[in-house]
Write a protein that binds this DNA or RNA. Structure first.
Lengths: 404, 404
DNA sequence: CCTATTTATTCCAATGAAGTGATTTAATCA
DNA sequence: TGATTAAATCACTTCATTGGAATAAATAGG
């Protein structure tokens, strides 16, 4: 265990990020307001804003009026200040999106995978990214980085397989480094649930939260944790494997070796199976539409799945609450919004837990705000998070994305 | 959500703590070694050590020899640099211990509570502390603070009651502030499990760990989390309520309203009940001896309890692992060491979880190193932790204990 | 035994970050 | 129109870390 000391340069970078994050979360706001929010001196804020404007990350939007005194100049994040790519990949579909640092999607491409081999996939990603940059007239040096999301767990950039084997040939492939070398851009790798949690934190239901758990419903079930304002990845980078929380002692057997795991009751694969899909291990966009339609029509097979999924998720939510006492639990994933809401309606009311007597203004369970593109959107937020979020300990190890 | 900026003074205090913590964990070591460990310049370390020696927190112990070059001067923490009190209180017994900053117990007193009223208890604590200071010839200004541990959860220094009501009259009493005013010393309040986790982190099985979960077996079951090198208290300060993790769906009813909670299978109260104790809601020291004796004699009633407790704890450990992927899980509490070890032996082998394929050098489940005095020992470490541990975010809000 | 080498530590001045206090700017209020 | 209020900036100060040179004290080798 090594503890690093801080110097002025660390403090400097830390403060730029504090200011940037404050602007991002509370824009529009003035220099004077940033001063009050951060506790830094007005002069310091003035200097930092000058630098951030110079770098094109922050812009002046308007003068305020109506109050006494010199009118405040409102600032916000300059959307053209930077761009990121989000790549989600899994189950035969490759989704690439281009967003700006304000979180607006600028371009989007959905492709069928030509091959399952790692090298071929990376080539396809690289080609798509180049084409998008060309089409949108974005210079490569204005791209902060590329987020890559895969529905799996990692340790040191390599896949870790817990239950069934998903992707043969990928296990010992250093995905992140290979793509980074190929693109000449910073690449960040994350599992789907954590990426989704980061996305919700930056632009969605978690904007103002520091501590929450994200339950990701995809082909399987994943969990992303945000604790003390930072994603929590655990001692070895594999936290949030809530799909294997036991919600029914002695219940259905799971490939992980235990019985009654959450994933055996609440995944999209199971919804598809309930709807009569034989090959439900993979989830494609059309499948999600079918689920939405089934809900619309009140298909009893889907309703039965909903009930079962809700019952098991209810258990999981209470476990998460009792263990972590989060501000809230966010339920999300690839499910269409109406299905998600139907699910939440069935999960409630929640049983007693430590979260019971908390302030009433935060509900215990809320729906994620990003839609079915969540994995790619979450991926796209990774470089923004890496380059914007203030966390001293991260500044000690030179981060992947450094823009200020 | 408010983000604070850093200034030179923050960096300064942060660095003193980094150095102090490095010395604490790796002593004996030289200035040059601290330089390499922290990444700070040799001159900086020299200055900081000069200051810390001046303040009496660090001392030179010896010159090293045998190697080339100017011999290094070994440093370590000066035990006389400061003192703390640990007070644990619950179930009719008050335990007060005096320790130095190196973690050595200097004095100890076990008292029966004269009364259950808050004011009377605080008076008794204050009197005991004054007597100890007198007896050990320790000046009050050399005391960093007092840690107070109660087997309950808090929110803003007030008790929060989840299931049964434990202490009538205490619910709306501002314990910490009252005792602090009475003593004229910084007082820190914590629940038993979190305090025990902090204690293990500073002086016990968690010395070199940054991420672990502590399962506290007392009258009930509590959990303390240590994440990213800091205790994790959750969004509202009530994390770690693992006694109410459901380990047996539809199992025994629990006062919390659910069924099959861990606490219904694995607490010391239940062990006592199994041994025929009718009034098992409270646990006294004699009770623990009885449990140890029962194990010694192979009492089948205790063995049955051990098996049941082990089965439910096994579930809980796997849940914790899958949710948090900690470096390890520490099992501790008030149980005598042989009983704790018998329990661990019965919990193993652990089922599959994300922790399965981690580096083999860290076992998945280990026993706590502090004995039955754990609550008070943990309490005593609270001021040390507060005054020594480097965490920038804590420095923003003026901490309770400030010694450097 | 003496000198070169190695390593730890300290002296002194430089750097560069935030902070301070006075000043300027630009609005509303009366 | 002048007083008041608040935002933002200018010129200068403060101070913790840093960098480079110097010093101290041991071992290694001839």
């Amino acid at each position: 265990m090594k503890l690093f000391g801080a110097n002025m340069d660390h403090a400097r970078r830390f403060n730029r990020r504090v200011v940037l994050e404050t602007v991002r979360l509370q824009a529009p706001l003035s220099r004077a307001e940033i001063t009050r929010a951060t506790g830094l001196a007005p002069q310091t804020i003035s200097n930092i804003i000058a630098e951030l404007s110079e770098a094109g990350l922050v812009r002046s939007v308007s003068r305020r009026s109506g109050a006494r005194g010199q009118p405040a100049v409102d600032l916000d994040i300059n959307p053209d200040g930077g761009f990121t790519f989000g790549v989600s990949f899994g189950h035969g579909v490759l989704l690439v999106i281009l967003t700006d640092v304000a979180g607006v999607v600028r371009d989007r491409a959905e492709l069928d995978l030509a091959s399952d081999a790692p090298e071929a996939v990376l080539d396809q990603i690289a080609a798509t990214i180049s084409a998008m940059l060309e089409r949108q007239q974005v210079a490569r040096q204005r791209v902060w980085g590329v987020g890559l999301v895969i529905p799996a767990l990692f340790q040191d950039d390599r896949l870790v397989v817990l239950g069934e084997v998903a992707l043969p040939g990928w296990k010992d492939f250093s995905l992140r480094q290979s793509l980074q070398d190929k693109l000449g851009l910073p690449v960040l790798l994350e599992n789907d649930a954590t990426a989704a949690a980061i996305g919700e934190r930056l632009y969605g239901a978690g904007r103002t939260l520091t501590d929450f758990a994200y339950i990701y419903i995809g082909a399987g079930i994943g969990g992303g944790l945000f604790l003390r304002g930072q994603p929590y990845r655990g001692g070895y980078g594999k936290s949030g494997e809530i799909g294997h929380l036991v919600v029914d002692t002695g219940g259905r057997p799971c490939p992980c070796g235990n019985r009654g795991c959450l994933e055996r009751y609440a995944s999209v694969s199971l919804a598809l199976k309930a709807l009569g899909d034989v090959q439900a291990a993979t989830v494609r966009h059309g499948d999600l539409d079918r689920i939405a339609t089934a809900l619309d029509k009140g298909d009893p097979r889907l309703l039965a799945w909903l009930d079962e999924a809700a019952a098991s998720l209810r258990q999981a939510v209470v476990m998460i609450e009792n263990m972590l006492d989060p501000q809230t639990v966010i339920l999300g994933g690839v499910l269409p919004r109406p299905v998600l809401e139907a699910l939440i309606a069935r999960i409630e009311p929640l049983p007693r837990s430590v979260s019971l007597n908390k302030a009433a203004d935060t509900p215990r369970l809320i729906a994620a705000e990003m839609g079915p593109d969540t994995p790619a959107l979450g991926a796209a937020t990774l470089p923004v998070f890496d380059g914007m979020t203030p966390e001293l300990s991260l500044l000690f190890k030179q981060g992947v994305v450094e823009r200020i």
